[in-house]
Design a protein around this nucleic acid. Structure first.
Ligand SMILES: [Mn+2]
Ligand SMILES: [Mn+2]
Ligand SMILES: [Zn+2]
Ligand SMILES: [Zn+2]
Lengths: 150, 150
DNA sequence: TTTCAATTTGTAATGATTACAAACACAAGC
DNA sequence: GCTTGTGTTTGTAATCATTACAAATTGAAA
């Protein structure tokens, strides 16, 4: 676990969010998981720690976190929203073969928020779609399960 | 109507797609509609021209067009996929108040396709999320129906 | 202890998308 | 003309992520 409980408490407190057990656990899971997990994947991973955790709580909690800017919702894959525990703007690559979403580190002058043509910018999203390096090596066959965590 | 039937025929023929009446009509509708319409909006507009048109045909036809690169599917709004009749890469602005998707004309060095880190790039997507100029002037109240065409 | 609001949970809708098989169109060959 | 076959279109029925909603639970304040 990268993030410990007291650090998570500080993050929540710093955004005026009451640090319940569920919220601490969920935030820790999203921030530790680098695979941009779906609600489904998060729930499967979290029921081990919170057996009674409902999907409804996951939906409402992640919506709250996203509104507070703690996490970011990625709508890259039309089938399911995925969550990114790194709220700082960065690019992504979506592989249409294995359906993974990878971080891409490139500089982009358009990644600074602010304003454009009078429109207030709250979030900046940039991503590429294609076939990832691993899947290309496998001749287009998927190289990984899209649901695997960590 | 911007695009006439013979021009549409050429576009389809040029991509090896048989120019049926449905396909010609659907392609014309997507290319003429600048509002990045949903399947629902397209269907509502097209049943006037093709009373028997099924949603299934719309789904399969637009999937075909997107695969051929004639149109682009936008997954910006998590609720519904929207279609863009302009396949050339360009940026978008998604207003969370009126839910419109506006074209943004900015240059971006990352908009050229090709390859990155060994991943094959087929599509480049860039967009901003926030509150549009019109909605800001209206103090955050939505300024337009998200379904209006043209 | 009592109260009360916020949080969490389970269940039931909602609604876009997909699966599937029947109906249809149309060209090639007879 | 008719027959056949293939691709297209259509209607209906699942699928399944997301949302709506109200009851249950929590926890702090009075
Ligand atoms: Mn990321
Ligand atoms: Mn556009
Ligand atoms: Zn891949
Ligand atoms: Zn707006």
């Amino acid at each position: 676990m990268i993030t410990n409980t007291s650090a998570l408490r500080d993050v929540l407190a710093g955004h005026g969010v009451k640090p319940t057990f569920q919220r601490l656990t969920i935030l820790g899971a999203v921030m530790d998981n680098r695979s941009h997990p779906t609600i489904r994947a998060l729930h499967a991973a979290l029921v081990r720690k919170i057996p009674t955790l409902s999907k409804t709580t996951l939906y409402s909690t992640l919506e709250l976190f996203a509104a507070k800017g703690l996490v970011r919702a990625l709508t890259i894959d039309p089938a399911e929203v995925r969550y990114d525990g790194v709220p700082a703007p960065h690019h992504h690559f979506h592989c249409t073969a294995c359906r993974r979403i990878l971080d891409i580190e490139i500089s982009c002058t358009n990644s600074r928020a602010g304003e454009i043509h009078g429109h207030r910018i709250d979030e900046v999203h940039g991503y590429f779609k294609g076939v990832c390096r691993d899947c290309r090596a496998n001749d287009g066959r998927s190289v990984a399960s899209p649901d695997r965590n960590k």
